[in-house]
Amino acid sequence: MTAESSTPNGGGPDSGPGAASGNSATSTPPPPGGISRRTVVKGMGVTLGAAAFGIAANPLKSFVEDLTFDEFIQRHYKELTNDELTAVLARLKTEVKEDYGADVEIKDHRPLKGVKFGYAINLSLCNGNGKCVEACHKENNHDRATNQSYIRVLEMPKGTMDMEKGNTTYNHAVPLKDKYYMPVQCLQCDNPPCVDVCPVQATWKEADGIVVVDYNWCIGCRYCEAACPYHARRFNWTTPEIPADEMNPIQSYLANRPRPKGTVEKCHFCLHKTREGKAPACMEACPTGARVFGNMLDPDSSVRWILENKRVFVLKEELGTQPSLFYFFDE
């Protein structure tokens, strides 16, 4: 910058056309009359401009050094062959080792046949203790610095469903007598606005109902964050910070592997667990039994029983998003 502003007359125009005119001063024969003073000044201006440009671009160096060629040319998840996917998973494992110093296992979990996941939360039982928020934070290798989680719990006054009256930042012993508590996370909509708006198909709905993100395809435009009516998506404003000994080593490509900076992530119903027949971390952690997770296509599942026997409701039903996460009250 200093070089640039100190030239009295020769501040280069943008280096594109200028670069060419700089050449004319040295190589191409000038029009009759020889090299004019003006041409020489232009050449100097361009040289200084180019130098300043180089200095200005300096911070990009570390970014470019971190970006491997394989990462740059990696294709969309759905276009990877089995061999390519194996190579990608191996590369990611090495990257986690290099960046975090942790030994992890990254698998690729595919949807199970005949399964459509559903979640029902009993608001009469939930007491706002926040164990689900914490479990999600640990299970999904969230950024420690921001205490990130896919779940937010709203403390609501009894007698209203208006979220404007809710509070997500309460910090006192729970439950309060005149309040009820409503955890909100991705509702895995059947008609997800976030998927529609993604310009590069980096997010999509899988056969078992889970809306996933290919963290290596997302361009970070955050249109999905604007489109989601439930504040379910999170952006990695910087590289997540996770100590090696706190890293959950059981990982999956579309799930809880450390996400790259500059990309969007969201709740995936712990697919690295649920697609192996286990419960999601938030349900495992819930001490009240308010959370019921299962396969909605299985007539004997508890979630199915709730859907058939309780008066369940979904958030912002009028938007037509058709969520797979339901709420109900017992009494």
Partner: peptide, 9 residues
């Protein structure tokens, strides 16, 4: 864009 390097997508 969070990932301008992926502009080609």
């Amino acid at each position: 864009l969070g990932r301008p390097d992926r502009f080609w997508h």
